[in-house]
Structure formats: structure tokens, C-alpha cells
Write a protein that binds this DNA or RNA. Sequence first.
DNA 1: AATGAATGAGATTTCATTCAT
DNA 2: TATGAATGAAATCTCATTCAT
Lengths: 200, 200, 200, 200
Amino acid sequence: MAKPALQRSNNRNAALLDKAAELFATQGFRETTMRDIAAPVGMLPGSIYYHYPSKDALLLAVYEAGVDRIVEQVKAAIAGEHDPVERFRIAMATHIGAITRDDHYTRVINRVLPEQVPKRSQALTQIRDRYEQLFREVIDALPLDPSVDKGLLRLMILGAVNYAQFWFNPKGGLAAEQIGHEFARYLLDSIAGKGGPGYS
Amino acid sequence: MAKPALQRSNNRNAALLDKAAELFATQGFRETTMRDIAAPVGMLPGSIYYHYPSKDALLLAVYEAGVDRIVEQVKAAIAGEHDPVERFRIAMATHIGAITRDDHYTRVINRVLPEQVPKRSQALTQIRDRYEQLFREVIDALPLDPSVDKGLLRLMILGAVNYAQFWFNPKGGLAAEQIGHEFARYLLDSIAGKGGPGYS
Amino acid sequence: MAKPALQRSNNRNAALLDKAAELFATQGFRETTMRDIAAPVGMLPGSIYYHYPSKDALLLAVYEAGVDRIVEQVKAAIAGEHDPVERFRIAMATHIGAITRDDHYTRVINRVLPEQVPKRSQALTQIRDRYEQLFREVIDALPLDPSVDKGLLRLMILGAVNYAQFWFNPKGGLAAEQIGHEFARYLLDSIAGKGGPGYS
Amino acid sequence: MAKPALQRSNNRNAALLDKAAELFATQGFRETTMRDIAAPVGMLPGSIYYHYPSKDALLLAVYEAGVDRIVEQVKAAIAGEHDPVERFRIAMATHIGAITRDDHYTRVINRVLPEQVPKRSQALTQIRDRYEQLFREVIDALPLDPSVDKGLLRLMILGAVNYAQFWFNPKGGLAAEQIGHEFARYLLDSIAGKGGPGYS
DNA sequence: AATGAATGAGATTTCATTCAT
DNA sequence: TATGAATGAAATCTCATTCAT
């Protein structure tokens, strides 16, 4: 009972952002109206503007929170591990877990392209870069054959990994994290003799 | 008099579709207005409706043509080749070539998601499937270790490959087709002893 | 019957501009809504945008037409006269006539300040200058004592003259044109011995 | 404790009014939001309503204070003078000084028209009249030729004088007060043989 | 004396689509 | 074949004002 007002305030604000994340992630940015966001929270469209100055700002906030979440999860997951290969496997598994989970914030990042909001595309791209950076570090640390273009490998992996959010089915066969490990295996384990996707 | 008129009709029709493809691919579907499409063709927005019954129809037509082009190119490229591994390499290289090239039709397929047009999402998904099907065949034919989930591998590859359209820079290092071959190498060649991305 | 469509088109467009001029002049720019303008013309607010790209553009068009009208009237009125003093008298009288008449276009110029529309204030000021320029010429031609600052006199006169639109009452004593002649008399005639507002 | 609190209240109250005067004078009434006024004073929009019941009320208070200031200044300036002509010269000079000075209160009166606030236009007009009244007295006392319509002369002068606030440049040639004397000279002095704007 | 949060009414603008010509 | 004109529905956003605390 100490901070009911603040509590309420925080809730409303958070509820707003949550709903925006959900709708941006599931319907898309342009496909979501301010009314769509406000109504389920019990507000009128104009009331959103007390909390956020524009629809763009709402997207920015969601984007930022989304990247924060992925980065935090991945960082936490690889924190204790020192083996570069293990770190890579864990990073992939955690990342796929983050974006296939029922967390709308993380899904917005791949669902809404920065170019869809010309006025904010630069800002959005910068936020996005923060999470690509993490992958750069993990991949750069891999003890790979010098003939491998690590930059290219990173882009290949990001593509493979992010696409999962569009086809992953929680009721399907593999768990999200297992998918990550499989992906790692197809890429690396083969030559380590652990049975990759080589000729049988 | 019948032919020229029809010819002209086709031209207008084609010009319209070309411009729609270009704008859908570069700006997005919702971000492109009927006026945006009509103006460069020297028409007014309403005039489009003589050729296409709706904006959705325009997208469908572009989608269909885009998938046709990719499928045709990939099929033609692998036509003479019988070795499954080579067919896979060629398919990847050709696919990446198709979607990174300056062909707006092929790019629309990854730029515009079926869910963005709820009324047509089913139809769009069906069109899209036609080109995933091709990959299914090529991958299924690969002589891989039984432990490899070929369905998962296909999704991994589609993700990796399609993402290229968003980062590929024609003035950059590798040519589009080379990227496909690199991707294939990272996945398969290692085990064949050709030096994949294994531990150095 | 030859150009009914065009006729209709012109009428609608003109009716729109007329109504905008009327409302901007009587209510003010900010005080007038697009709905206010559209409704009496039998249109919906959005339909205005087929003819004018924005509310600002509507104001610009009215402003331009308003200045055109004043300048045309004054130029026509002084056209045959060569005596500088007579030209001055006629210019004042005609100008007052123009802005006190029931012509909404001319009244908008003094009713709506350029600064009220920051994005267009420069353009509006430029249009406005066209009609101050005319006064500059007429006043510069006056054979006045060198001690008179003609620039200051012009500003004094513009202020005096334009204010008339706010107090002039067509049913009141003097006709608009007579007021102009009186103003001229108070300023000039005195020293010519014609009985100005000197000490009695 | 009563005084300081009240004092503080007055201060906030005054700060609010000052800012309102400034913004109404420089931006206009409709162009100024409650937030615009509150923010620089360190308040929130809603907080204004503790001090003033509405935006209109704020304008009314500014208007009243503005007229008070002009009237006071003019009255004080002409207080010691008995010669009607001198009183007229001083009144003009002082008036122009008041509205061209950096005093936002006095400038609001000519910047915001009573008609812009329909619900208060009558009240605003009444306030305005108080300062026109002063001019009426000063002009009526002038020993002018009977052919001069003093009412018309007053309106002419008010227009000329009030327009100064829109073009006066403190860094320009003449000081505000000098302008008033020049205006008086163009109107009256000629006939007194002091060299008015007569034919050279 | 002021805040935080929201309302509600309405403003400008956008745009796919229609339809007589 | 296409245009010109408009619709209508909705979208984003603005802002004076309210009111419990």
C-alpha cells in the first residue's frame, strides 16, 4: 500500500509497452494502430501520448528492450563458459531460445525492419547492431581454419538463427535450444569427428 | 489493330507490375501507395484498377512472378548436374544470386511477409512454398549422415540464404554466387576433407 | 454544355478557395478547420486534399490571390494618372476600398499573419511584400520635403490604411474611398493650403 | 507564515502570467499551448488551473495588465503637460515606446484579436477600448480645423501607431519615441511651418 | 499548491477504392 | 483505357481540461 500510485503508473506504462511489443511482433508496425494498442490497456488512443511522444518512440522503446533482453540472456548464458566452441554453441542456442520464446519484445527486432520507419531507421539499426556485435565477438573467438571468412560466417548464422522465429513451433519436435545445438553441429562438429552433416 | 492494342496493354500492365515490384521490394508493401506506383508509369492511382482489381492483387502477381523467376533460374542451373552435392551447391549459389541481384521481383518474396496481408496470406504462403519445395528436393537428395535432420537443415539454409538479400553489397568482396559456395563449404565440405570451418 | 466537366471542376476548386478565403478572413486561420471549409461546399474534409496538398497550401493560394487583387485594383486605378500626389491619393483610396470591400481574399492578408504558419511564413511574407512594394513606388514619387523619411512615412501609411479593415463600417458615414482621400488630406494637403488638420 | 506563502503564490502566479504574455505576444494565442506556458515556469499544464481557471482567463489577465501599462505610461508622460499639441506628440511617442519595447504585455493587445476568442471577445474589446479612449481625449483636445473628422483621425493614428510593433527594429535608425514625434510632424507640424511632408 | 495520468473532442492528413465520363 | 473527382474510413496526433491524490 506504500506506492499504489506509482505502482499504478508503472503498470500502465508497462502494460502499454507490453501490448505494443505484442502487436508489433505479431501484426507488424504499420499494421498496428494506436487504437489497437490502447484499447486492450483500457485507454484511448490519445492517452498513449502522455507516456510516449509518438508511435515511433513506442517502437524504439520496444526495440531497445528487445535487444537488451537478448543480449542479457546470451551474456548470462555464456558467462561461465570459457571454451570458444562451447560459448558459440550456447550463444546460438540461447539466441534461438530468446526469439522463439513467447517474448514479443525479442521478436519485434526481426519482425520490424528499420527501413519501415525511415525517420528512425538509423536509430533502430544502431540498436540492432548491439546484438549483432555480441555474435561477432563469439564467432571471432572460434578457432577456425583461416580460410573461413568469419564475417560471412556471422551473417550466415544470423540469417539461419533469426529465421527460426518464423517457423519454430513450440509443439513441434525439437526444443528451441536444441535447434541451436543442431545448427552448431551442422557447422562445426563434423570436422571434429563428432558426426556432422557430411557424406554418409 | 488487335495485336498492337493488346501489346500496348501488356506493356502498361508490365510497367505497372515492374514498378510495383520495385517499390514493394525497396519500400515495403504498406509503405507503398497506389499513387507511388502509378505516377512513375504516367498514370493516376485510379487507373491501376483497370489492370488489377486491388493492391493485394498487384502483390500476388509480383509474388508469383518472383517465385517463378527464382525457381526457373535454380532449375535451369541444376538441370545438367546429377551429383547431389553439386546440385546443392549450385542451388544455393543460384538462389543467392537471384535474390541479391537487382531483380525486384525476387526480393519482394522475402521483403513482404504473407502475414502483412491477412486476406491473402494463405495464397502468398502457397506461392512461397513452391520455392521452398525446390530446396526440399535438393537437400533431401544429399547423402548425409542419418543423424542430420534434413528438415531442420533446410530451414537453417533458407534462413542463411535469404538473409543475404538484406546485407549483400554488390560492390563488396565476394560475388553473390561465391557466397553460396562458401555457405555450402561451411556446411558440408569440411567433412569431405576440403577444409571447412573446423578447429584449426 | 461544351465543358460541363471542366466547368464543374473549376467551380468546385474555386468554391473551395472562396470558402477558405471567407473563413480565414472572418474567423482566422487556426480557428478554421478543414471541415469548416469542406462542409459548405458539399465535400468531406479529406476531399480537399485532391485539390490542395495541405491547409497551408490553401492559405498560400488565398494569400496570393488576395495580393493579386489589391495590386491589380490599385494599378488599374492609378494607371491614367501622372501627378504623383494624385497617384498617392488614388492609391490610398483604392487600397482602402479593396480591403474594406466584401472581398475576403484581400482581407486575409491583414487578418492572418505570416508568423502564424511558421513553415510558410517566409513564402507568405514574400507575397505580402509584393503589395507593399507598390506603395513604396507611389510614396517615393511624392515631392516631399527632404526632411521626411519616406520609408517611415510608408510604414505609417500602411498601418493607418490596413487598420481600416478592422473598423470600417459600410453603413457608417464615409465611403471607403473617401476615407483614403481624407487620410491623404491629413498628411499632405495642409501645407498646400487646402486645409489640413492644422491648428485652427 | 501567511505572507511568504502568499508571496510565493504571487510569484508563481506572476511568473505564469509573464510567460503567457511572452508567448501570446510572440507566437500568438492559438499557437501557444498550456504546456508551452507551464514548462518554462517549471510546472505541468494541469497545474496552471490552480492559478487560472482557463486559457481564456490567462489571456484576459494579460490583456488587462497590458492595457494598464500602456495607459499608465501615457498618462504619466502627459501628466505635466498642458499644451494639447504637446500632449498629443507625447502620447504618440509614449504609446509607440510602450508597444515596441520588450514588454510582452503591451504587445499582446495588438497581436491577439478579440475575435480569436469568441467567448471572450466582448470582454477583450472592452479592455481594449480603455486605451483607445485615452487617445480619443488627447485627439479631441487638439485645436484642429473643423473640417477634420477627429474620429477618423484617431483611427488613422491608432492604425499607424500600432503597426509599429510589427516592423520596429530596436537596432534600426530611429528610437521608438522619435518615431512618434515624426508621425506627429507628418500630420500636424507642416501647417505650423515647421516643415512637414509637404510639396518641396 | 501542484502532480500524474488521463480524457474527449477534434484536428489534419492518408489512401485504397469507386465511378461517371 | 484511362482520368478526374471524390469518398469514406481510419490513422496519427494535439490539447485544453479534469481530478484524485
